[in-house]
Design a protein around this nucleic acid. Structure first.
Length: 488
RNA sequence: GUCCCCAUCGUCCAGAGGCCCAGGACGUGGCCCUUUCAAGGCCAAAACGCGGGUUCGAAUCCCGCUGGGGACGCCA
């Protein structure tokens, strides 16, 4: 039985990298019928906050990532907040000390700081010098009597620590390069290494899928597993996501919070598709995936070893592709809040004009990369306050030679029966011929007249959607608007 | 500085010794469709970091170099 976990620290929002790590874990669990656990690593009480927990949970939900065990869901290994499991870690630390795998360290943070700086000044790295590892009993007694604060440090044994990483293959470290790390702080709070390992053991995690940046932590954690006489889980370290400058993705690269992308009008399915293909490949040429496709295709073996650059253009493409694949019903549901926000929603869009709304959405669908663009594209259909693009008016509408034919076109449209794209197109082309005007000139002029813009979906569909009345009104008013401006 | 990871088009990936004078996708340029803009179709430019090996044969294996990234906390 596969058990994986996503273990964010609520010291920030759910960022792109974290989301992908969560996604990979989730996909892996779902692919193999395993269990996906959400565990909140809030042992850093200073920096953790409830808002951040809510933000992370919200981000995961938005992406459609659900968990089988976790904070709100509960489960056989509850609680899923590390801050509520402190006693477990203290007991674990005690076991390490009892087994001779760890020792008390009385060095003050200030002293360590000093030593570290000194080592750095002489141009070298620093690992703890084990000053407290072999303190004589009298010295320990003296320190204890004086009430000196003590931390618990893990005693790294000599030798080498290696593991078979599922994406990188064998990785090994000389233990000499691994320092005696603190497992329990002097205030009796556990450190990350202790709490992850204690929890991953207790929660029976079988696969640890996490960011590359944890590779150097892995030997410490494996040593801990060994000290606890348990078999470590399998590790899969996925490469990091970089900004276009190949630096670690950060705020200066724009939006890095997943939930920000919701606000920008990205579909969660597009985000998931994009993220999944960032550092992972199904081994085929398929690019577009539904969540179900991904679950079916996902395998840890397809994760590549090198860092990946976040490419916003490709995200946009995925978004557009997924928008086009959405059913009109679905799309209109997602558009409703947006349209309401701009006061462009009409109550009968769920009633009498439902079918009309769907036709409009279908027309606009392939022209939109992000949801908010819909609002702009839809404006001419939803309000009479359209506003004219002056350049478009000058180029296509305000032409003296067009005045008469345009007026006759308006009359022709007025009597067109039925008022449908096909009939309107035939009427326009017939008129263009008899007036010796290129059809394109009339089309462009009409487009500007009824939408205010030089670009729109196919004119005749637009006209049909607008309806006889609005077309007549806008055609009658448009040239007038130009005249007014000219004289004013 | 030490340790670790990585190295194919600008970007994301395919390629697990001959099928590769390297394939797909985004982006870019051109053409087609066409009433504009998209969408769609077609075409094009664009890469195996360098140097040594191993081998009949290397993008693929080994070594070195270079470059990029990560980690070196009583943060997670």
């Amino acid at each position: 039985m596969i058990r994986v976990r996503f273990a964010p620290s609520p010291t920030g929002y759910l960022h792109i990298g974290g989301a992908r790590t969560a996604l990979f874990n989730w996909l892996y669990a779902r692919r193999h019928g395993g269990t996906f656990v959400l565990r909140i690593e809030d042992t850093d009480t200073e920096r953790s906050s409830w808002d951040m927990v809510a933000g992370i949970v919200g981000g995961l939900r938005w992406l459609g990532i659900d968990w089988d065990e976790g904070p709100d869901t509960g489960g056989p290994h509850a609680p899923y907040f590390q801050s509520e499991r402190i006693e477990l870690y203290r007991a674990a630390a005690q076991r390490l000390v009892d087994a001779g795998c760890a020792y008390y360290c009385y060095c003050s943070p200030e002293l360590l700081q000093q030593k570290r700086q000194a080592a750095e000044a002489s141009g070298g790295g620093w690992v703890y010098d084990r000053a407290c590892c072999a303190l004589p009993p009298e010295e320990i007694a003296r320190l204890e009597a004086s009430g000196a604060p003590r931390a618990v440090r893990f005693k790294v044994p000599p030798g080498e620590t290696a593991f078979d990483d599922l994406v990188h293959g064998t990785i090994s470290f000389a233990n000499a390069n691994v320092e005696d790390f603190v497992v329990l702080r002097s205030d009796r709070q556990p450190t990350y290494h202790l709490s992850v390992v204690a929890d991953d053991i207790e929660m029976q995690i079988t696969h640890v899928v996490r960011g590359d940046d944890h590779i150097s932590n892995t030997p410490k954690q494996i040593l801990l597993y060994e000290a606890f006489q348990t078999t470590p889980p399998l590790f899969a370290h996925v490469p990091l996501i970089m900004g276009p400058d190949k630096k670690r993705l950060s705020k200066r690269h724009g939006a890095t919070s997943v939930i920000e992308y919701e606000r920008l009008g990205y579909l969660p399915e597009a985000m998931v598709n994009f993220l999944a293909l960032l550092g992972w490949s199904p081994g085929t040429d398929q690019e577009l995936f539904t969540q179900g496709d991904l679950i079916h295709a996902f395998a840890l073996e397809g994760i590549s070893g090198g860092n990946a650059v976040f490419n916003p253009d490709k995200l946009d493409w995925f978004n557009q592709q997924h928008i086009m694949r959405l059913s009109v019903e679905d799309l209109s549901t997602r558009l409703e809040p947006l349209l309401r926000e701009h006061r462009l929603w009409h109550h009968d869009f769920v009633g009498a004009r439902r079918e009309w709304l769907h036709r409009m959405i279908d027309l606009l669908k392939p022209r939109v990369k992000r949801l908010p663009q819909f609002v702009e594209e839809a404006r001419p259909f939803l309000t009479d306050e359209i506003g004219f693009d002056e350049a478009a008016v000058r180029k296509h509408l305000a032409k003296a030679a067009l005045a008469a034919p345009f007026e006759r076109l308006r009359a022709a449209f007025d009597t067109a029966e039925p008022f449908t794209a096909g009939v309107l197109e035939a009427a326009l082309r017939t008129l263009a011929e008899s007036e010796h005007v290129p059809p394109a000139a009339l089309i462009q002029a009409t487009r500007v007249a009824v939408t205010g813009r030089a670009v729109s979906p196919g004119l005749f569909e637009v006209l049909e959607l607008l309806g006889r009345e609005r077309v007549a009104r806008r055609m009658a008013n448009a040239p007038l608007a130009v005249a007014n401006r000219d004289t004013g």
